[in-house]
Amino acid sequence: MATAQHKDTTTWWGRLTERCYTASTDTLARSVKDQAGAAFDALVNDLERPLEPRFEQAVAWQLAAGQPAHFKPARTLMPMMMQRFGLEERVLQEKGQIRHADYVALRDTCNACAAVGDCWKAMRANAEIEECRRLCPNANAFDALAAQSSCVD
């Protein structure tokens, strides 16, 4: 009697390895953050670096749990967020000099943001403006600055 048998092409070793990786991804991200600070800093500051989705999520959770000392969201995330709102950071800051009075407050708000992990993932995924408005505590200020700059142009 010929019966069709379903053959799982993944070996038992492959399934075991996958389960182990899945179970240890959070620990791996935490270990990189705690024990390889420079590597973690490079990883979170490079928004273009491709990451495996579970590891990316684990890194976002690590950012949400407490930012590493050398990670400043205003340096990495805020310029990209501003671009989503049609703003250029150089307009507010030129040659290290603050040209707009609100820039310091915007930067401070960004650095203290509770949604840094979600923002990091959103900037990595090139989030649309509506998601950015939902996430960013500076959204209203960015909208107002964008409106001002369009009136000046």
Rank of each mutant, 00 (worst) to 15 (best):
M80N: 15
M80K: 13
H70Q: 06
H100T: 02
M82T: 01
D102S: 14
M82G: 05
A74T: 00
H100A: 02
M81G: 09
Q93D: 08
R90D: 09
Q67D: 02
R75M: 08
V91G: 05
A74P: 05
Q67A: 11
E89I: 01
R84Q: 05
R99N: 01
A105I: 12
H70C: 10
D102T: 05
E89L: 02
M81H: 12
F71R: 03
F71I: 11
Q83W: 03
G96L: 00
T76M: 01
Q67L: 15
G86K: 02
F85I: 13
P79N: 03
F85P: 02
P79F: 02
C110F: 00
Y103R: 12
Q67P: 03
R75L: 13
Q93H: 04
M82P: 08
T76Q: 07
L106R: 07
G96Q: 00
D102H: 06
R75C: 10
L92S: 01
E89Q: 09
E89F: 02
V91P: 05
F85H: 04
E94I: 07
L106Q: 06
M82Q: 03
G86D: 01
L106F: 04
R90N: 06
A101C: 00
Q67E: 06
D102N: 03
R75Q: 14
R99A: 09
D108C: 09
L106G: 04
L106N: 05
M78Y: 04
E94T: 11
L77P: 04
R90A: 06
P79E: 01
H70Y: 06
R99Y: 00
L77N: 05
K95F: 08
K95I: 10
